[in-house]
Design a protein around this nucleic acid. Sequence first.
DNA 1: GTCTATACGCAGATAGAC
DNA 2: GTCTATCTGCGTATAGAC
Lengths: 205, 205
Amino acid sequence: MGLKDQSTEAKILNAAKEVFMKFGLYGARMQDIADLAGINKALLHYYFRNKEKLFNAVFESALEKYFQQVTVMGDTSMSVEERLFKYVDNVFDFFEEYPQMTMFIIKEVSINPELFKQKVSKLKENKPFVVPMLQQAIDNKEIAEMDPIVFIVNLHSMCAYPFLGAPLFRGMMKNNGYDWDQVKKEKIKDAVKEFISFKLNRKDV
Amino acid sequence: MGLKDQSTEAKILNAAKEVFMKFGLYGARMQDIADLAGINKALLHYYFRNKEKLFNAVFESALEKYFQQVTVMGDTSMSVEERLFKYVDNVFDFFEEYPQMTMFIIKEVSINPELFKQKVSKLKENKPFVVPMLQQAIDNKEIAEMDPIVFIVNLHSMCAYPFLGAPLFRGMMKNNGYDWDQVKKEKIKDAVKEFISFKLNRKDV
DNA sequence: GTCTATACGCAGATAGAC
DNA sequence: GTCTATCTGCGTATAGAC
């Protein structure tokens, strides 16, 4: 879909997403958003009244997308390991498309923790929460004994950080002849899945 | 050391660190830095000329501390596994003290990649680079076969992300009766070390 | 070295024509 | 709905007294 085909509101939202993602609420400039959307600054206010309201629209859609990744965990037609693999695939695709989103959300929530409390509660209600699901699989002896919270955090770390820290990794590896985005794409995902298999199938606990 | 004992310059730097960490270059306000330092706004300019120069002073000290964590890897009196364990301890202590620093560095480098190229090259020269060290240990059969880059990224992810994403994790877990900072402190570090042992000592490769 | 007062520019927001 | 022109306030930076 080219920019010409979008409604003005959609153009604004897309431009705002990009600029807020990069610079955050305080750093973003309304002028930059208008320029990127190919419209005038005044139109931003016509559609969204003020900067804060525009930001909120972007933030809510970001959070919605972010939590949508987890829905696959509720699909009981697959084994727990298959669901986790699929989840990892989803998360990688998601980060490929929105590499700045996690950073963006973390940054804004860290500046204003209320944001999270306000928005996330209702979103989470409809999603299958992962920890109880894992706990049940452990109780059923379907997977190995583990602390499900620690596992989920480890897993999420290994998925998210390669994208979050990409600016650093790129800088560090370029000097040494590696291409970070290549490594990330080809090898990190497999390593995460290897970690999942290790944790789910180990016999020594 | 109480604030009263610090030189004005040190007070400014400490205040600037805190404010820049939280709000970034664009979001930080000189007035807030002055207030936190307990001095007048004009003094900031007297000592550091302008906002950008003050920011650079903070950024450089942050980057220096950040890369200092890796020096332990050069201590050949310990085994590779011991060095990695020690490294993890260091990194956790470091993040406990400066939870915002990684975020801060990533954010600023992502906005301005030149920052990294300019500063990091000379810092890195004096530090033992981890990947070649691991490669050598692999060649010597001291540790199991693996891709050292992928391993280091996984490791670093598991250490950094629990601090980076703390605002999110806190929000998510508070609703469910868990205290994130407790979990992080007591269990995540052990899980990282377990991962190290798994990767270094596995026989099936 | 440290302060108060002030200049200056930029970014968010509004008024009003079309 | 979209634009140009303009207002207003805030934040950086400077001038100048002490």
